[in-house]
């Protein structure tokens, strides 16, 4: 049981190096290769941060739901830890996505927040829902039940993401730039390449952070268990916050 943090740490070093390299390449492409957009000028370059952040966050929520399904099916607490950390990092990415989106909206539409803009509004709703994951999780004391209920929440919320996007989009006009529509139509190849490299960089960053967080949690759990074993052999306790990682 001890020494299992090796498992989470496996491949962490090459992954971290790949992430750093991907960001170096992506930032070079953004600033030196991608053309200046004629309408919006330099501010349009925030697109290469904003869209990958938002896409990674949304995919991360769905990945968290898939981990939660794995937890419910196998009853292995490892998957609950994965699900928790995936959602946690995606929420942080989502904050980044909202802030960069707001800056972009101010620069190109003149307002910090635009209500008739379905993608922004759906994203906010999804973000708010996932913010309730934390109070929900920590309001349940029993650890087994906490893990199970959190997984049920993650599954429900994961299914909610596409439904919500559909409903909000139907309710409003379409003014948001459609990334994939423009990818086929208007966006030049150099922009598309930069965007894809940036997306890869953010996906790598997400994965690296996921693994780091799991290693950290696992190491902290081991230290706590060892300390308890030294102080009072035979008793084991754990923090109320965050899933226990073995």
């Amino acid at each position: 049981m001890y020494g299992n943090s090796q498992m989470y740490g496996k491949g962490l070093r090459p992954l971290s190096i790949a992430t750093v390299l991907a960001f170096a390449v992506s930032l070079s492409l953004i600033f030196f290769y991608a053309p200046l957009e004629t309408d919006q000028g330099f501010i349009q370059k925030i697109f290469y941060l904003h869209v990958p952040l938002a896409i990674t966050a949304l995919v991360g929520f769905v990945v968290g739901a898939i981990f939660a399904v794995a937890h419910l099916r196998t009853d292995n607490r490892k998957w609950d830890a994965y699900s928790y950390v995936a959602i946690h990092i995606s929420v942080i990415f989502a904050v980044g996505g909202l802030i960069t989106g707001s800056i972009w909206a101010k620069a190109s539409w003149g307002h910090w927040w635009v209500w008739n803009e379905p993608t922004l509004v759906s994203f906010l709703i999804v973000f708010l829902l996932y913010c309730t994951y934390y109070p929900f999780r920590y309001a349940i004391e029993d650890r087994d039940r906490q893990a199970r209920y959190a997984s049920v929440f993650a599954v429900t919320a994961g299914a909610f993401v596409p439904l919500n996007f559909m409903a909000v989009r139907m309710a409003q006009s379409l003014v948001h730039p459609r990334v994939f529509a423009t990818a086929e139509g208007g966006m030049p190849g150099s922009m598309l390449l930069t965007f894809l490299v940036s997306l890869t960089a953010f996906a790598l960053l997400w994965t690296t952070l996921l693994k780091f967080e799991l290693v950290a949690k696992s190491a902290a759990g081991q230290v706590r268990r060892l300390r308890l074993a030294l102080d009072a052999p035979g008793t084991a306790s754990s923090s109320r916050i965050a899933p226990e990682v073995h």
Binding site: L129, T132, P135, A139, V152, A167, V168
Partner: peptide, 27 residues
């Protein structure tokens, strides 16, 4: 059914339910 087994049940129902029913209310 999830909230009733937690410590903050009266708080959790509106907190979690409201974002979830946004699409329902839109429609």
């Amino acid at each position: 059914s999830m909230a009733v087994n937690s410590r903050a049940r009266d708080l959790l129902v509106p907190l979690v339910l409201l974002p979830l029913v946004v699409p329902l209310m839109i429609a």
